[in-house]
Design a protein around this nucleic acid. Structure first.
Lengths: 249, 249
DNA sequence: GCAACTTTGTGCGTGCCTTCACAAGCGACT
DNA sequence: AGTCGCTTGTGAAGGCACGCACAAAGTTGC
């Protein structure tokens, strides 16, 4: 159905990589985590209904999402968890480690550097950078903080593929340029600015203040609505998770 | 155009509160921040083109977003920044402070508690909770960490409207139930679980591991694509920011 | 006071994503 | 071996959001 008529797809994974809707990719990551938990609990298979209920999505949507990466379900039974996990990991590029560089070891940056969920999930934080002389040289989780000016050499040396920017807003664009210049093509940006990047670079933004403001909007709406809350909600709702996840302090 | 035929809208703000697309709400918060910066630089007005360029969105989309909250632009001139900021703040519910409770003062929680961007933007962190006896009782930014079991009284007492959950995954649902039981109707969830809540409660999820996995997918895609990167990118791109923002460590 | 320019506000076409609903397929039970 | 029940995979429809392009409206200059 989504099979492109061109190119004699040499590989299921390769075929899947083209044209998976971005929204689906975000959910695939959520499915993957839930599948991991199910596997730990000893389950061998899951039905789309079970997995959908556990992850809070529509069962049909889940099946369509999984269909983008190929047919790994057994009709009448469900999905074999182990096989599905393996395929999801391949699709999401988790079959080889992705070295992550983190720039900005301040308040949030420190928390990110110490977050065990990254390394455990295939994202070893491999390099730390800052400009503050008091921070450069210290060790966090066994990694030494380097000066931002060393980004090019160190990123190249350690094969960094993903950059995280947790600097103050004004510094972010400069840092971003350095990362891009070092060959980093994917960036997770926590700074409250819109980064300018060449088209081949993918930027995702996590903006905590904006998240709170969105919630504040809903507070205001619920307040205004008064007792009519339920009616209004059922009209405006329809999504809650935006896809991002896993902070175990 | 978007004027609902029912209800004799008593108020512009009230009218705007119904049926603003969620995607627009997220962008309104971004516009608001950028307008704040422009105001600091001494600007009095902005055109939609300028503001759109600064925030990385399509000018038409920006105008449509702003049209949801009313007509505050002057044709031939642009938008008067001060008036627009005021109206945006009203719409987003920032005209009165929103007391925020933060549960889980571990790695990330600590960083969030110390993040100055919240209080400065109308979101004073008013209460901190944890279960760890080593943490209960300590002060962070002048706020004492209370035990999770005190959530009901303290939230009621301090008028908490927004809850942030930064606990380990397994603890999140229990904490969520406590918050909801205390009257909190909006929750920002950093724990890697899907929270079950009654329909009148709004949950937004920030999942850092998922963000990285989405980026990893793009790394894999770019790798697979080889030199064809540019072509592929222009086909698959179309959004980069997901709307969230403001971490100044 | 008029004309030309600038910028907003929005109707409309387009494409993506979601959701429903159902046929095809697989296992279990008899 | 056949039938029944369950679950996947997907065609098709609906809804939402995006972006274009243009008319309305206001300003500036003469």
């Amino acid at each position: 159905m989504t099979k492109p008529p061109q190119a004699g797809s040499e590989d299921a994974a390769a075929a899947s990589l083209r044209s998976i809707p971005e929204a689906s990719v975000a959910r695939l990551a959520v499915y993957l985590r839930m599948l991991g938990e199910l596997a730990e609990q000893g389950s061998e298979t899951v039905s789309s209904d079970e997995l959908a209920a556990a992850t809070g999505v529509n069962p049909a949507k889940l099946r369509k999402d999984l269909s983008y990466i190929g047919s790994y379900g057994i009709r009448g039974v469900g999905y074999e968890i182990a096989a599905l996990v393996r395929q999801l990991e391949r699709t999401l590029g988790l079959d080889h480690l992705q070295a992550v560089a983190l720039v900005g070891v301040g308040n949030l940056g420190h928390a990110l550097a110490g977050y065990s969920g990254f390394g455990g999930r295939g994202f070893p934080v491999t390099a730390l950078f800052d400009v503050d002389p008091d921070l450069v040289g210290i060790h966090i989780n066994g990694i030494i903080v380097e000066h931002v000016r060393s980004i090019p050499e160190i990123c190249a040396e350690r094969g960094v593929t993903i950059g995280m920017i947790a600097t103050p807003g004004p510094a972010a664009q400069g840092v971003c340029d350095l990362l891009v210049g070092s060959g980093v093509r994917c960036i997770l940006n926590f700074a409250p600015v819109v980064l300018q990047v060449p088209p081949e670079v993918e930027v995702r933004k996590v903006d905590l203040a904006v998240e709170l403001q969105i919630l504040a909007f809903h507070v205001a709406r619920k307040h205004l609505a008064g007792q009519d809350t339920a009616t209004l909600d059922s009209r405006v709702n329809g999504h809650a998770a935006n896809g991002s996840g896993g902070m175990l302090p």
